[in-house]
Amino acid sequence: MKQRFNTLDLQVALHELSVCFSGCRVTNVYDINNKTYLIKLHKPDSKAIVLIESGIRIHCTDFDWPKNMIPSGFSMKLRKHLRSRRLEKVSQVGVDRIADLQFGSGEAAYHLIVELYDKGNILLTDYEFTIISVLRPRTDENSDVKFTVREKYPFHLAKQNEKLTLEKVKELICDAKQNEDLKKILTFNLSYGAPLIEHCLSIGDFPDKCIIDKNFNRDDDIEKLFNALLLGEKIIEELKTEIHPGFIVTKITKAIKLELEKNKELENEELVT
């Protein structure tokens, strides 16, 4: 079971929210627990609910979630500033796992910023991105930036997209140590996310465990790798412009194989009798 959203999940979910709910007004905000919130929007003849779980996920939902009888202080703050405002814009901050939901426009706008990395966070800011309320006040250890009320949200800390070039790929491979895992190198340095990196390497016909200088040649395989990664760039652009269905995937583990074999034996016995 997927534990939290990766970059691709976020891009797909935000595009769906933008297409389905842009222009809808907020009717109410509820909390399920101290990390999970529901934003109910007005949309004629259909449910329009956005589920936000700090550090984990953000998406539309039709499920009838159990709500807390008494709303939390953070929910009340969101109700005060967001209720009756239109959802004007949904965007990703850089290429980080951060969503920015804009309610209202101009100087009357409010931004709900949802962080889906590490321990996560949800912040409400005004139109100038000054923090009004924050679910988890904290100070960034690396930069001493404060995520607290009356501070500006630090957009400059978010990862920004860098255009993929052959030179960039060559640089990554040249800097790699002998016997390093190619997938780990690419996952750490590119904003694709591990699943898309795996897909690109598979399409490029690289082995599952591709090791630098063992089954990856620094000279001969660079262009092949670059072309495989360009496919990843194309997939990312498609995900930003089209609504895609989700897929349920299962891995056939040893336990599942044994169960399948056992069921097959029982079926054969029944056929014999």
Rank of each mutant, 00 (worst) to 15 (best):
Glu269His: 05
Leu266Trp: 03
Ala13Pro: 07
Glu269Phe: 11
Ile113Glu: 09
Ile256Thr: 15
Ile32Cys: 12
Thr241His: 03
Ser46Phe: 06
Cys210Asn: 13
Glu237Ser: 08
Lys264Cys: 13
Phe226Ser: 06
Ile248Val: 07
Leu101Cys: 00
Lys77Ser: 10
Val50Ala: 13
Ile70Lys: 08
Arg86Cys: 06
Ser133Lys: 05
Leu82Arg: 01
Ser91Pro: 00
Thr250Leu: 15
Ile256Pro: 14
Glu167Ala: 05
Pro207Glu: 07
Tyr30Gly: 03
Tyr37Ala: 08
Lys77Gly: 08
Gly23Ala: 05
Asn161Gly: 10
Lys35Ile: 14
Leu260Lys: 12
Glu151Ile: 04
Thr250Gln: 15
Lys152Asn: 02
His111Val: 00
His59Thr: 01
Asn263Ala: 15
Glu171Ile: 12
Asn227His: 08
Leu190Gly: 02
Ser22Asn: 11
Glu269Gly: 06
Leu229Tyr: 09
Lys209Ile: 01
Ile252Phe: 15
Asp181Tyr: 15
Asp126Gly: 07
Lys224Glu: 01
Ala48Met: 07
Val12Lys: 14
Val29Met: 11
Thr130Asp: 11
Val90Lys: 05
Arg138Thr: 09
Glu259Leu: 15
Asp144Trp: 09
Ser54Met: 09
Arg79Asn: 12
Ile236Gln: 04
Thr125Trp: 02
Gly23Phe: 09
Arg4Cys: 15
Val95Met: 12
Val93Met: 09
Glu16Tyr: 04
Ile56Val: 02
Arg85Leu: 14
Leu225Trp: 08
Lys184Asn: 13
His244Asp: 01
Lys119Ile: 08
Thr139Gln: 11
Gly104Ile: 01
Thr36Leu: 12
Met1Asn: 06
Asp64Trp: 12
Leu164Val: 00
Asp31Leu: 10
Leu38Val: 01
Ser46Ile: 04
His199Pro: 03
Leu157Ile: 06
Leu51Val: 02
His199Arg: 01
Asn68Ser: 12
Pro71Ala: 08
Thr7Pro: 12
Phe226Thr: 02
Ser72Trp: 11
Leu14Arg: 04
Leu260Tyr: 14
Asn68Leu: 11
Asn179Val: 05
Lys77Gln: 10
Leu258Val: 09
Leu258Asp: 14
Leu229Trp: 08
His42Pro: 11
Val169Ile: 10
Glu162Pro: 02
Leu186Tyr: 07
Val272Lys: 05
Lys209Pro: 01
Ile132Gly: 00
Tyr37Val: 05
Gly73Gln: 11
Gln92Ile: 09
Ile56Asn: 02
Gly23Thr: 00
Glu167Gln: 10
Cys210Ser: 12
Cys20Thr: 04
Cys60Pro: 10
Glu115Trp: 12
Tyr153Ser: 00
Lys119Gln: 13
Lys159Ala: 07
Gly23Lys: 00
Leu229Gln: 10
Ile203Asn: 13
Asp100His: 04
Ala108His: 11
Lys234His: 09
Leu41Ser: 01
Ile248Met: 13
Ser72Ala: 07
Asp118Val: 00
Glu267Val: 00
Glu141Leu: 04
Ile256Asn: 15
Gly232Asn: 08
